[in-house]
């Protein structure tokens, strides 16, 4: 086992462990902080695998923005300190389904790849990633950006009653 293997295992354990805590914790805001840890560990995984840019984008977007937005919304509405009794109902069927799907997927993966060895890809430098995105994958990239743009416009229309109301009167 190399250092990278140990790091991968450790970070994976942190990511999975804190991920489990996110759903099992009865502390509402704390589960948000566990999510930060989990996503941070995933960024660490990317880093170990050599995808530097993806790792830092993960930190920038998920840790620095998405989770913060989530916590922000929680704190604006309800942010009790200590466990919330109504949060954690024992949901055995859900646990069974979740665990079943997870195990099934794992089994499928293991069966599909067996002991096939792949050479590890080149480090995901910014240069290589840029070439890939704006070369081979430019069409999906542009389609995605149009999708995001339309979602943005939609969000503005939904959040501004003055725009929506005028249309309702016209119709």
């Amino acid at each position: 086992m190399t250092v990278a293997d140990v790091l991968l295992l450790a970070l994976g354990a942190i990511a999975v462990g804190s991920g489990a805590l996110v759903v099992t914790s009865t502390h509402l805001v704390r589960s948000g902080f566990y999510l930060v840890v989990s996503l941070g560990a995933i960024a660490g995984l990317y880093l170990v695998l050599g995808a530097e840019l993806v790792a830092w984008v993960q930190v920038l977007v998920y840790v620095g923005a998405v989770v913060v937005l989530l916590l922000f919304a929680v704190m604006l509405t309800r942010a009790p300190i200590g466990p919330s009794a109504d949060l954690d109902r024992p949901a055995l069927p859900a646990a069974v389904i979740g665990a079943g799907v997870g195990l099934g997927l794992t089994a499928l993966f293991v069966d599909a790849f067996r002991w096939t060895r792949f050479p590890s890809p080149d480090p995901g430098t910014a240069e290589r990633l840029g070439e890939q995105i704006f070369g081979a994958w430019v069409l999906p990239f542009e389609v995605l950006s149009i999708l995001l743009l339309s979602a943005l416009v939609g969000a503005i229309v939904l959040s501004r009653p003055d725009i929506g109301a005028r249309k309702a009167e016209d119709a």
């Binding site: 930190v59 840790v63 430098t125 910014a126």
Partner: peptide, 19 residues
């Protein structure tokens, strides 16, 4: 190689401390 990205990403973590 991508120091700028690291800097911006890590600075974003500060907000977690505030929260």
């Amino acid at each position: 190689d991508i120091g700028l990205f690291l800097v911006l990403a890590v600075l974003g973590i500060g907000v977690v401390a505030v929260l």
